[in-house]
Design a protein around this nucleic acid. Sequence first.
DNA 1: CCAAAAGTGTTATCGCTACACCCATGT
DNA 2: ACATGGGTGTAGCGATAACACTTTTGG
Lengths: 241, 241
Amino acid sequence: MAHISSADYDPADFPPFAVTADLVVLTVRDDALCALVVRRGEEPYAGRRALPGGFVREREDLRDAAVRELAEETGLTPGAVHLEQLATYGAPDRDPRMRVVTVAHLALAPDLPTPAAGGDAAGAEWCPVEELLAGGGAELAFDHAAILRDGVERARSKLEYTPLGAAFCRPEFTVAELRRVYEIVWGVTLDPRNFHRKVTRTEGFLEPTGATTSRDGGRPAQLFRRGGVEVLYPPLLRRTP
Amino acid sequence: MAHISSADYDPADFPPFAVTADLVVLTVRDDALCALVVRRGEEPYAGRRALPGGFVREREDLRDAAVRELAEETGLTPGAVHLEQLATYGAPDRDPRMRVVTVAHLALAPDLPTPAAGGDAAGAEWCPVEELLAGGGAELAFDHAAILRDGVERARSKLEYTPLGAAFCRPEFTVAELRRVYEIVWGVTLDPRNFHRKVTRTEGFLEPTGATTSRDGGRPAQLFRRGGVEVLYPPLLRRTP
DNA sequence: CCAAAAGTGTTATCGCTACACCCATGT
DNA sequence: ACATGGGTGTAGCGATAACACTTTTGG
């Protein structure tokens, strides 16, 4: 079979696909890594949970579709969250009704003061990832358990070599808040003192605001914003072999 | 807009897309990182080079389509090469004729004794990546320069924390051959002695065959196969800050 | 004063860089 | 013998892990 650009190209040649953008939106909430899910009302998988998403429109870029879905479900806009493409899933029978290819995106959001359940986007809610994936993820519709697993794994590894842990925090946050993100996402405990040194000394990771807060109790902590770098060097590696 | 699963689902609701699988096939050849490209015969972009690829068939999984295209262009099968999904590109005007979403895949292949140009797959040839991306990649059709850049960057970073450098080598290879892969893909020079220690001591990276070869001249070198691990710990980090 | 959390200092160890040096082959 | 590349030893340095210790708040 030739590339679309080859001599035997004919618009009638290709099978039509539906293309959707699905979202793995993660946040840290009540000491658990949570994902945004909706409850399905229709067959197939009626009553089961699913990742939010929808059709890509006729003249819409893939990322734009993901941004639009994210805004509809959460009210969040890029800038407030991190959004990146995750992977694309297109097994022939992933949707029994028709051929659907979904371009999954990963979003990392701070814990929302206004939960997503209010306003326009009724129906979406945060659910601990551990619960969604319990029993092999059978609770989730379609291949959404696999997509969620891939999204969680991507988030875990991105914490190692990018400053994206901060995407789970409020715009201004303390080192301890950031550390709790790492502990919950990785499922480990970290030494507070070594973590503090590590993140404050890694050039470009954190930018001090000058202010302090005592919202976590004890001695007031400095507040930081995300720094400018995209990659951490050296990275924060998980595991202690 | 609702998810495909919502109450207002109707097969007529969604715009149809063509879905293609395109390939970034990389190899190391004549001291350069090279990609497999085809020459276009048709408008648009007639006479320009393009990444190999083609339509995903009616009942074919995305990876299967990539495997099929790879076999058609190179005769290679998974097992002989590493193949992974790279990313998906779907800007509305990326193909002026119609709405096409392409799921790009990345393949890493050893330098082929039988070049791809022979046999069925006439027209495909290896071209240095540097040459293809010179001048912003204007030589390449569609958005293929961006896809190639993303593929190369993925390959570069995968060499850091996975044993995939070995995917560029023959089934049995010496440490020096592996080192040259790193040097060419990263565009750096590495200390042969430290590299040797590093890769031979990283558990699971290399598995000695017991045999030696003197094909590179000088003292005969041990031959190795790829080891079993998927991730390297600790990783081989590029840059020397 | 005491509890709690922030933040600093110190030491042992590990991994990496740089480079001196020896080994095994082809010519 | 000598050139060529394979492979080992070692010293210095920077990063990490473990943990003692000081600082600054609230109650």
